[in-house]
Computed example of a mutant assay.
Amino acid sequence: MKPTKGIKILLVDDEPHILQFLEMGLSNEGFEVQTAPDGAIAVEVAVDFKPHVVILDVMMPEMNGFEVVKQMKADGNNVGIIMLTAKDEVEDRVKGLTLGADDYMVKPFSFDELLARIQARLRNQFPDLLGEVTQGPFRIDDRRKEIIYNDKALELSPTEYELLKFMIMNYGIVLSKTLILDRVWGYDFGGEENIVEVYIRSLREKLGDKEHKLIRTLRGVGYRVDLP
């Protein structure tokens, strides 16, 4: 899926080579992109630029990512914030989500994964910008909360819808149970991880995926959607 013109992305990182790489890649995808080398400048830029999505590093001089999240979310602004965290820094991810960040990615990450997460934020927070999204045999209509598979509407519970949408939007990427619980059930979910297996089993039945070729299990790692 190619994003439509007019979707604004603000990149915030104190590493110039990361800013340059992401700015070039996202501009080539059709996004309108602006950059900021630190949190204080990012807050100023956001006032006039009014981004739809902010890609935000946690550790920066002047003002760290947590302070930026606080200020950008303070007035109830509808902006999607994806935080970039160091590997294994679970406390940073929890703190960012608690303050109002919408998603996180662990460095290093692939550009394709970043695109998938941006698209997920747009689908969740700005559905009118994108309309329907088609990925392989799936068509997602977030306004109707409906997923069409091979031209047939699936009968899904609200949680099944959110889980399948999340997996489709991140197809080709291995998704751990922990990540799925964070993104679908919420980071403060206090239940058992096995709930993911139960819902995956239900989705496979509704998709007719008896051989697990569509939703694959990677033992000890997680799940991955493979589209034809």
Rank of each mutant, 00 (worst) to 15 (best):
Pro3Ile: 06
Lys8Met: 03
Asp13Lys: 11
Asp14Tyr: 05
Ile18Pro: 00
Gln20Thr: 12
Phe21Tyr: 13
Glu23Val: 01
Glu23Lys: 13
Gly30Cys: 07
Phe31Asp: 02
Thr35Ile: 14
Pro37Cys: 06
Gly39Asp: 03
Gly39Leu: 05
Ile41Tyr: 02
Asp48Ile: 08
Pro51Asn: 08
His52Lys: 09
His52Asp: 14
Leu56Ala: 06
Met59Ile: 14
Met60Glu: 04
Pro61Ser: 10
Gly65Asn: 03
Gly65Asp: 02
Val68Asn: 00
Val68Asp: 01
Lys70Ile: 10
Asp75Thr: 12
Asn78Gly: 03
Val79Ile: 15
Gly80His: 05
Ile82Asn: 01
Ile82Lys: 02
Leu84Tyr: 03
Asp88Ile: 06
Val94Thr: 10
Leu97Lys: 03
Leu97Val: 08
Leu99Asp: 06
Asp103Glu: 15
Asp103Arg: 04
Asp103His: 08
Tyr104Gly: 05
Lys107Gly: 04
Pro108Met: 09
Phe111Arg: 13
Arg117Asp: 06
Arg117Gln: 07
Arg117Thr: 09
Gln119Gly: 12
Ala120Leu: 12
Arg123Tyr: 08
Asn124Cys: 05
Gln125His: 14
Gln125Gly: 07
Phe126Trp: 09
Pro127His: 07
Pro127Leu: 08
Leu129Pro: 02
Leu130Pro: 00
Glu132Arg: 15
Val133Gly: 00
Val133Ser: 12
Phe138Arg: 07
Lys145Pro: 02
Glu146Cys: 12
Ile147Trp: 08
Ile148Glu: 14
Ile148His: 06
Tyr149Thr: 09
Asp151Pro: 01
Lys152Leu: 12
Leu154Ser: 09
Leu154Thr: 11
Leu156Ser: 07
Ser157His: 05
Thr159Glu: 09
Glu160Leu: 15
Tyr161Ile: 11
Leu163Pro: 04
Phe166Met: 12
Met167Val: 07
Met169Gln: 14
Met169Phe: 10
Met169Pro: 01
Asn170Leu: 08
Gly172Phe: 10
Val174Trp: 01
Leu175Thr: 03
Lys177Thr: 14
Lys177Gly: 15
Lys177Tyr: 07
Asp182His: 15
Val184Tyr: 01
Val184Gly: 02
Gly186Lys: 05
Gly186Val: 09
Tyr187Cys: 02
Asp188Lys: 13
Gly190Met: 09
Glu192Pro: 01
Glu192Thr: 13
Glu197Tyr: 08
Glu197Asp: 15
Leu203Phe: 04
Arg204Trp: 10
Gly208Glu: 11
Glu211Asn: 15
Glu211Phe: 06
His212Thr: 11
Ile215Asp: 03
Arg216Phe: 03
Val221Gln: 15
Gly222Leu: 05
Tyr223Thr: 12
Tyr223Pro: 07
Arg224Cys: 14
Asp226Ser: 13
